[in-house]
Design a binder for these strands. Structure first.
Lengths: 81, 81
DNA sequence: CTGTAGACTGTCGTCGACA
DNA sequence: TTGTCGACGACAGTCTACA
């Protein structure tokens, strides 16, 4: 093997706080991952990966996510760092 | 012709305002692309692509860029939208 | 409802080079 | 100093499916 297809990295320390923040925003809005993913027009499994700090989203994905959570981009990335 | 290797997309409307903002921040600090890229530990040519709205950086790249420009993440992405 | 696995396409991100 | 090109490895992002 060594085919390494579907990216499934372990939790990345750098991305973890962001993921927790996204989850907090979603919970605060009382939405399921599926609902947010649908509104953001992104994959539900991918959103799960983001919340768990396993994915490294691009700027365009962040824009979609902000839309899905109905917050502006600044609030989306305004976590502790 | 149709081999499409080294990513060299045309300007993406979605990414353009962000690029202009990054350029403004860099100019305000009186830095060259090379200096910022070095401090951010990223490729200079790639930074050029970002400023021109041709690249779609990931969250980790944004974190690096904030470091290179010596601003926090919020200021980095706080452009008009 | 959520997490994760497999498979696939397309792009990210780097390096070296040249205008 | 900046933009862009070629090549290439690695990963983003999607879809189906199952616990």
């Amino acid at each position: 093997m060594l085919l390494m297809s579907g990216r499934r990295p372990n939790t990345t320390p750098e991305l973890e706080p962001f993921g927790l923040h996204i989850r907090a925003l979603r919970k605060a809005a009382n939405l399921s991952q599926e609902e947010v993913a649908h509104r953001a027009e992104m994959d539900r499994g991918y959103l799960s990966g983001i919340e768990n700090g396993k994915r490294n989203p691009t700027l365009t994905q962040l824009l979609k996510l902000a839309k899905g959570l109905e917050v502006n981009l600044v609030d989306l990335i305004n976590y502790g760092e």
